[in-house]
Amino acid sequence: MTNIISFEDFTKIDLRVGTITKVKDFPEARNAAYQLTVDFGDLGVKKTSAQITSLYKKEDLLNRQIVAVVNFPKKQIANFMSECLVLGAVNGKDVILLNPESKITNGTIVS
């Protein structure tokens, strides 16, 4: 069984929709990853890394909307500072990105 959290705990997580505007290789990462720049509208632009190279090519990620946690503290990953966490479903070693079904305003709250 997974850890049980309260609804109050869940409300502390700030999930937002953003659009990937830049994708770079991240050769310094321990596991194959990309560096992503994501536009969250009024929240601004945040950077993150994502281990999604097995299913996604860089050009396929540009202008793609994703869902991310935007209120974690910054985290140093190799020589890069990650500012958010892109969400995906883990299937073995593959990560399938979570995204809205239709185009929506960047920064929209996910609840």
Rank of each mutant, 00 (worst) to 15 (best):
M1Y: 03
M1T: 13
M1L: 04
T2Y: 05
T2Q: 03
N3K: 12
N3S: 04
I4L: 10
S6T: 15
F7Q: 08
F7C: 09
F7M: 08
F7T: 14
D9A: 08
F10E: 04
T11A: 10
I13V: 14
D14A: 02
D14L: 00
L15F: 06
V17S: 01
I20V: 11
I20A: 08
I20R: 09
T21S: 10
T21M: 02
K22T: 09
K22G: 01
K22L: 05
V23P: 05
V23I: 05
K24I: 05
K24F: 04
D25M: 03
F26S: 08
P27S: 02
E28D: 13
E28Q: 13
R30L: 14
A32M: 06
A33K: 07
Y34R: 11
Q35K: 15
L36K: 10
T37K: 08
V38D: 02
V38Q: 04
D39N: 11
D39S: 06
D39C: 08
F40L: 02
L43Y: 04
L43R: 00
G44R: 00
K46Y: 01
K47I: 05
K47G: 06
T48N: 07
S49G: 08
Q51S: 11
I52S: 06
T53H: 07
S54M: 06
L55I: 14
L55G: 07
Y56G: 10
Y56C: 09
D60W: 06
L62I: 15
N63D: 08
N63A: 12
R64V: 13
Q65W: 09
Q65N: 07
Q65Y: 04
V67G: 00
A68N: 09
N71P: 02
F72L: 15
P73H: 07
P73E: 14
K74D: 11
K74H: 15
Q76I: 12
I77G: 02
I77Y: 03
N79T: 12
F80Y: 07
F80R: 06
S82G: 10
S82A: 13
E83T: 14
E83S: 12
L85D: 04
L85E: 01
L85Q: 03
V86H: 02
V86I: 14
L87S: 06
L87D: 04
G88F: 00
A89Y: 06
A89C: 09
A89G: 01
A89T: 11
V90F: 06
V90D: 13
N91K: 13
K93H: 13
K93G: 06
D94I: 04
V95D: 05
V95Q: 09
I96P: 03
L97F: 10
L98T: 13
N99A: 14
P100S: 02
P100M: 01
S102E: 12
I104Q: 09
N106L: 02
G107S: 05
T108D: 02
I109K: 15
I109P: 02
